[in-house]
Write a protein that binds this DNA or RNA. Structure first.
Lengths: 129, 129
DNA sequence: CGGAATCCAATGGGATACTG
DNA sequence: CAGTATCCCATTGGATTCCG
C-alpha cells in the first residue's frame, strides 16, 4: 500500500528525477543484496545459517533485514518448516534470476575496467596529499 | 596509496568474498552517483551549479563529496578556471562513459520487471500487516 | 535454529554560515 | 561561484540477550 505516497516522497527527496535507473539501484544494489542474491544463485536453495556462513562478514540481524526486503520485492522466497529445531530455507525466484545477465554484465565491466579505477585512484592520491 | 591495506580491510568486512560484483557496486552505485553520471552523460560538460540544479534534491556538500569520489575513481574530470567569480566545470571521462551500456541494460531491466516488483510488494504487504 | 528485541556507536546527510 | 567548516539529527549496523 501507500503507493502514491511512496512515489511522492521519493520524488521529493530521491534522485529519481534526474536518473531513470535510480529505482532499480535502490532495489538491487542496496548493501549486501548482491552477495545474497549471488550466493542464492550459485548455491541454490539453502538455510539461513548456510547463507550466513557463506557471506561471512554479515551479521544475523542485517541478513534478516535484507532477506525480508528481497522477499518483499519478489526476489527471494522464504519457506518455513515448523519442526524442532525450526528450519527455514531461502531460494531465489525467477524475478531474481532475471538479474543474472545484468550481474554478468557488471562483472564483465569490472574485469575490463577495475584496474583503470585503481590507476586513477593512485594518480589522484599521489598528486596532492 | 594504502592499496593492500584497503584490500585487507575490505576483505575482512566487505561482501567481496561472496560476490565478484561488490567492488563495482561500491564504485558505481553509491548514493547519488548514478544521477550525477547520468546528468553528465546526457547534458555534457557543465558547471557545479548546473549539476546542482538539474539533480535537484542534492545538497552542495554531498554533491561535492560525490564529485570528489567520482574524480578519484576516474569517472569525472574537474577543470578549475581561476577567474572572478571562479568557474569549475565537470565532464564525464571515457571510463565513465564506458558505463553507458550497463546503464542501458539496467533501465531495460527496470522497464521489463519493475511492475513485477510492485506486485510482489503489494502481495507481501497485503497478507500480514 | 532462526530469528526478535534492545542498546549503543559510527556514519551520512541536511541546514547554516562563512571564504577565496 | 564553488566550495569549506561547523553543528546536528536520523539512519545504519554491530553486539548482545532472549525466545519459540
Amino acid at each position: 500500500m501507500a503507493t502514491e505516497t511512496d512515489r511522492a516522497s521519493a520524488a521529493a527527496t530521491d534522485p529519481e528525477l534526474a536518473c531513470p535507473t535510480s529505482a532499480v539501484v535502490d532495489i538491487v544494489f542496496s548493501r549486501w543484496t548482491t552477495p545474497i542474491l549471488w550466493t542464492l544463485h550459485t548455491h541454490g536453495r539453502q538455510r539461513f545459517v548456510e547463507l550466513e556462513r557463506r557471506i561471512g562478514a554479515i551479521t544475523a540481524k542485517v541478513l534478516t533485514q535484507r532477506l525480508r526486503q528481497l522477499e518483499r520485492d519478489g526476489m527471494v522466497v522464504r519457506t518455513y518448516h515448523p519442526e524442532v529445531p525450526p528450519r527455514v530455507e531461502y531460494e531465489i525466484t525467477d524475478l531474481g534470476r532475471s538479474l543474472a545477465p545484468l550481474f554478468a554484465h557488471l562483472s564483465q565491466w569490472a574485469a575490463a575496467n577495475l584496474d583503470q579505477v585503481e590507476l586513477a585512484r593512485h594518480a589522484y592520491d599521489g598528486q596532492a596529499p
